[in-house]
Design a protein around this nucleic acid. Structure first.
Lengths: 346, 346
DNA sequence: TTTAGCACTCAAGCTTACAGAGTGCTAACA
DNA sequence: TGTTAGCACTCTGTAAGCTTGAGTGCTAAA
């Protein structure tokens, strides 16, 4: 168990290091007003803290640097929720004050403000499209051979794809097809569309539409909405400002990781529940992120769905501030998205 | 005027520097099989070339490095069109072999292959949406207060926006509105939509629709399609591989510039004509791009529109290869987009 | 006109010296 | 027994000096 003095010293070391990115020595600590002991005493305590694995030396005679265990302890036990500046809060609220109708727009704005206020990289994952339900299907013929299929979902998302019309399909038949599709598909979640088309509708269409199979195939393909939702980024380049990435090799490794979105998706998709989760360094299970922490805020959206908002920064991150910001923004974003969704559910 | 020998030496210097990124010295040049003269002779010629401004020294006793004027001359007079590897060509063709219907998809793929084959950053600008014509307008009510407006253009582009319905607007009225809009707007270029709505349609709607003004306003706002088309990028991070950007400050400057898309838009939007344009270093009129060259290929798309494809790399770029690749890809892309457009014009 | 030779220059790498910041340990003090 | 002062020691970073190698310019001879 740590004594109060050890807690204090650990806290001050981590706070200092987060600010300066420089190893912290006993003398500079003992000069701080929070710490009333001589450097020798501090040295003894630091030696103990090191033995317990909370801090490390970069070389024999260097100051100490927080270890991952240290950060973990700091996040779990020492973090005092930092009051945000009024200015920041009102800046955030102003972003959400306008009534915005596009999910993408809201999400993109959230990513932007988050990265600007933190100077780290933000990643936002909106609610899953797969659970959206069909509101309306429309087919717009473009020319002899092709047409645009449009699906509008209950949340106002519009999905569209161009496809080849089967030979000899005329305007009448398209009309018929659209009617059947609307009769049958409205209310179906996008994730079930494919099965629905093939299982329930094949027979129905067979009776009414010539070349129904080609049409069906074309249509089923269109419905293949990607399973992974789009990730939105803010401040991808903010990592350039962090001294830990002045080594271009590390930077490249990290950037390559970010570009491969599937990886990131796994890291950010919340396993369960809502709230804030902090993953420090190797906890992320990814070599490129050894020097990084990922803080994820998962929030509820109407109808049991969840969205996530994440900040990727160096392990030497301003945890307190970032968590406060995530809390504010995720609450606002949750409200904004929920209202979009609820409106459409009536 | 340059003698043949000077031309040869200049060419070899630039080729060598493009490969190695190291200043080229007289001795290493005279060892090359292309050059049969002693290092002293080469030195004399280099001294002349420097006097004429084609090459520079980085310090008094260093080898020579091509100047911007040198690159310019190289591009204008010395470039031998490099035969691409069959492998590269077939890789490109295979990308365009599939029949793809979405403009965005095709363009994004072009950007990707281009950046992968060159290891530089690619930027693609598709044809201008503003010249697309309305094919169909649709309004899908979502809930009491809001609806989705959808415009399909003749090229198969779908634009949609959510908006608030004026109070008391019912399904019938929406139907009516849609009918009027379709009667009147089909065939209108997107760029003219706004004026059209206000000038020609205000009266028409006034007679038929209650609250027409609110509706009109809402609709006009929706039609506000951004004037700048989206830029598509490939290999944004490829700059990390270039030794000229091992200095993180230069990298940041460049990245900041890339992020401010409007800037880039100006650089890439072709002033006129089609074909390949090379801008070297300061010719780009941008501090961040002092060490960069931008090669832009402008190609025709059906109906007089043009698209552009660009490669951003260090001034020490493989001009010959990049130009060959741009030629191949822009031809393919031009065909692919044109066929999309022509289809819709019948 | 070309080349060989030579003196000269500069960058880069290596060594040495040194200051500064830090540690660990011991002995003295409250 | 906890705290502190003092001291020897260690490591980094920087600056100065030296050497090497690659390069140049110039001159004189072929």
């Amino acid at each position: 168990m740590l004594t109060d003095r050890q807690l204090l010293i650990l806290q001050v070391i981590i706070d200092d290091f987060i600010r300066s990115a420089q190893p912290v020595g006993s003398r500079s600590l003992s000069k701080k007003s929070e710490i009333q002991y001589s450097s020798a005493t501090v040295r003894n305590e630091m030696s103990d803290l090191e033995e317990m694995g909370f801090i490390e030396k970069t070389h024999t005679s260097s100051g100490r640097v927080p270890s991952e265990k240290g950060y973990r302890f700091y996040v779990d036990h020492l973090l005092s929720p930092q009051a945000l500046q009024q200015q920041d809060i009102s800046q955030i609220h102003s972003i959400f004050a306008e009534r915005i109708f596009e999910m993408e727009n809201i999400v993109q704005r959230s990513a932007k403000i988050l990265s600007e206020l933190t100077n780290y990289t933000s990643i936002v994952l909106g609610p899953n499209l797969q659970e959206n339900r069909v509101k309306k299907v429309q087919i717009v013929p473009l020319s002899e051979g092709t047409a645009i299929a449009i699906i509008v979902t209950d949340t106002g998302h519009v999905e569209n794809r161009r496809f080849s019309l089967p030979n000899g399909m005329n305007a009448d038949e398209i009309e018929k097809m659209v009617r059947v599709l609307n009769d049958r598909l409205v209310g179906t979640p996008l994730m079930d569309l494919h099965d629905r088309l093939y299982q329930e509708m094949a027979n129905l269409l067979k009776r009414r539409i010539a070349n129904y199979d080609l049409m069906l195939q074309a249509f089923a393909e269109i419905m293949n909405v990607p399973i992974h939702d789009k990730l939105f980024f803010g401040g991808k380049m903010n990592m350039l400002n962090q001294p830990e990435f002045s080594d271009i090799e590390k930077l490249r490794l990290l950037m390559d990781m970010i570009e491969r979105e599937e990886n990131l998706y796994k890291l950010i998709r919340p396993s369960e529940g809502v709230g804030i989760q902090v993953k420090i360094g190797k906890e992320n299970d990814n070599i490129a992120m050894e020097n990084c922490s990922l803080i994820t805020a998962t929030f509820p959206v109407a109808s049991g769905q969840r969205g996530s908002l994440a900040i990727l920064g160096p392990t030497r991150m301003e945890y307190s501030r970032v968590i406060s910001l995530l809390n504010v923004i995720s609450t606002d974003l949750s409200k904004a998205l929920s209202s979009l969704y609820e409106e459409s559910e009536e």
